[in-house]
Computed example of a mutant assay.
Amino acid sequence: MLSSKRIARALLLAALPALGQAAPFVDVLDLPAQHSELAVRSPLLAVTHAGARLVSVGQRGHILYSDTAGQTWQQAEVPVSADLNAVHFPTPAQGWAVGNDGVILHSVDGGRSWQKQLDGRRIGALMVEHYAALAAAEPEQPRWAELLAEGQRFVDEGADKPLLGVWFADERTGYAVGVFNLILRTSDGGRHWQPLLDRVDNPQGFHLNAIASTGDGLYIVGEQGLVLKWDAGRERFTSLPSPYQGTFFGVIGRPGEVLVHGLRGHVFRSRDGGRNWQALDSGLQVSITAATLDAQGHYRLFTQAGHLLRDDGNALQLLTQAQQAPVAGAVAVDDGLVLVGGHGVRRLTTQ
């Protein structure tokens, strides 16, 4: 009779081939996000309102939603595991999220479930098709050949181009922006997306980090001081005089006013549509990574180290907090703010 040690050894040897087999590769664009009780404490990169609901997106395809002003959260059904960088809801029901690998997701139920509309495996082909048609129609125009070559580069390099910002005017018309001047527009709710690289004053192909509306203007900010504004008459994003040559991470505003913020604590305000800018001294050398308007109408700005600044209309004031942690996104609720970042969600009572 075999000893217990010999039996155990035989069983182990029999199992070795199975243990040595690697799991088959599944692309994150085809792998649904995994449900986890720890998702609310996992890295989250953006948060927004969907009517009275809050929706937050983050790493590994995690999307959370809250109907209790951020006190409790539920995890949504998401068809991808790619990191998600931005989210926007033009209506309480209809919303879009974008992220790495060129992914664009759409929800029709306030963020409870999501469907994939586009990913980076198809973006290059869209660019090639679009700019090949323009090149054929206008062969004397060298710009079309340049953009056609750019589209082919996207095809050759695969689905590795992150989308970093998204904004929709309504249920039909919206934009997604990302690295290397990547910008897409839809006019049918995302059923079809059109490359818009030829409608942007960004000849050096700087990254487009964020897009937002102030109510009377649509702005994009990006690398090396890039600030763009949609010109409806010319049907393009035109460059504005930049107050800073460093990278901007965000843009926020309201009718008659726009703020841009970015590296090393830089914040600038314009009250004339971006023609002139006023520097707001943050007193910090830390990048400002998130901003929102609170319930009282004050701008609240946050740094990658978790500092909180309040704008009273004339200057920035640094506020103390009981707890300080990096912030990637923020929204106002009735009794304060809901913040998201590397440690998930937290609530902050405003001062």
Rank of each mutant, 00 (worst) to 15 (best):
residue 126 L to G: 04
residue 180 F to H: 15
residue 134 L to I: 01
residue 168 F to G: 01
residue 117 Q to M: 04
residue 108 V to C: 13
residue 159 A to F: 08
residue 84 L to R: 06
residue 115 Q to H: 12
residue 85 N to A: 11
residue 105 L to H: 00
residue 99 G to M: 07
residue 141 Q to R: 15
residue 140 E to P: 04
residue 117 Q to D: 03
residue 182 L to P: 10
residue 122 R to K: 11
residue 90 P to N: 09
residue 92 P to L: 07
residue 161 K to P: 10
residue 86 A to K: 03
residue 97 A to C: 10
residue 145 A to S: 12
residue 130 H to G: 02
residue 90 P to G: 02
residue 87 V to W: 06
residue 106 H to Y: 12
residue 91 T to N: 09
residue 103 V to W: 00
residue 98 V to K: 00
residue 129 E to K: 09
residue 103 V to N: 03
residue 109 D to I: 11
residue 131 Y to D: 06
residue 140 E to H: 05
residue 154 F to T: 10
residue 157 E to K: 09
residue 105 L to D: 05
residue 88 H to P: 10
residue 175 Y to I: 11
residue 176 A to M: 05
residue 173 T to I: 12
residue 108 V to M: 14
residue 85 N to G: 11
residue 149 A to F: 10
residue 140 E to V: 05
residue 113 S to L: 05
residue 129 E to R: 12
residue 182 L to M: 14
residue 117 Q to R: 01
residue 161 K to W: 10
residue 88 H to Y: 14
residue 171 E to S: 13
residue 133 A to E: 09
residue 121 R to N: 14
residue 107 S to D: 07
residue 100 N to C: 12
residue 114 W to Q: 09
residue 115 Q to C: 07
residue 173 T to K: 09
residue 178 G to A: 05
residue 131 Y to F: 14
residue 96 W to L: 05
residue 114 W to D: 11
residue 97 A to T: 12
residue 150 E to F: 15
residue 95 G to R: 02
residue 165 G to F: 04
residue 157 E to L: 14
residue 108 V to R: 15
residue 91 T to G: 08
residue 93 A to K: 15
residue 112 R to P: 11
residue 86 A to T: 10
residue 124 G to R: 03
residue 119 D to E: 06
residue 87 V to E: 08
residue 166 V to I: 05
residue 171 E to D: 14
residue 157 E to Q: 12
residue 93 A to M: 15
residue 113 S to Q: 08
residue 93 A to G: 14
residue 137 A to S: 10
residue 124 G to E: 03
residue 170 D to H: 08
residue 121 R to V: 05
residue 151 G to E: 00
residue 109 D to H: 05
residue 118 L to K: 01
residue 159 A to S: 14
residue 103 V to P: 07
residue 116 K to Q: 13
residue 89 F to K: 06
residue 128 V to E: 03
residue 147 L to A: 00
residue 170 D to N: 13
residue 167 W to L: 02
residue 110 G to Y: 01
residue 182 L to C: 10
residue 97 A to I: 09
residue 129 E to V: 08
residue 128 V to H: 04
residue 100 N to P: 13
residue 144 W to V: 00
residue 136 A to E: 11
residue 111 G to Y: 04
residue 171 E to Q: 12
residue 144 W to M: 00
residue 149 A to T: 14
residue 151 G to Q: 00
residue 163 L to Q: 03
residue 128 V to S: 03
residue 132 A to P: 11
residue 175 Y to P: 03
residue 163 L to P: 04
residue 145 A to E: 14
residue 167 W to H: 07
residue 177 V to S: 01
residue 131 Y to I: 02
residue 111 G to E: 03
residue 103 V to D: 07
residue 163 L to K: 01
residue 90 P to K: 06
residue 126 L to R: 01
residue 135 A to F: 08
residue 167 W to K: 00
residue 96 W to N: 02
residue 92 P to S: 08
residue 133 A to S: 13
residue 143 R to T: 13
residue 174 G to Q: 00
residue 150 E to S: 14
residue 112 R to Y: 08
residue 155 V to H: 11
residue 167 W to V: 04
residue 165 G to S: 07
residue 132 A to F: 06
residue 107 S to Q: 06
residue 147 L to P: 02
residue 113 S to M: 12
residue 136 A to F: 03
residue 108 V to H: 15
residue 90 P to A: 06
residue 174 G to V: 00
residue 118 L to E: 10
residue 136 A to R: 06
residue 153 R to V: 14
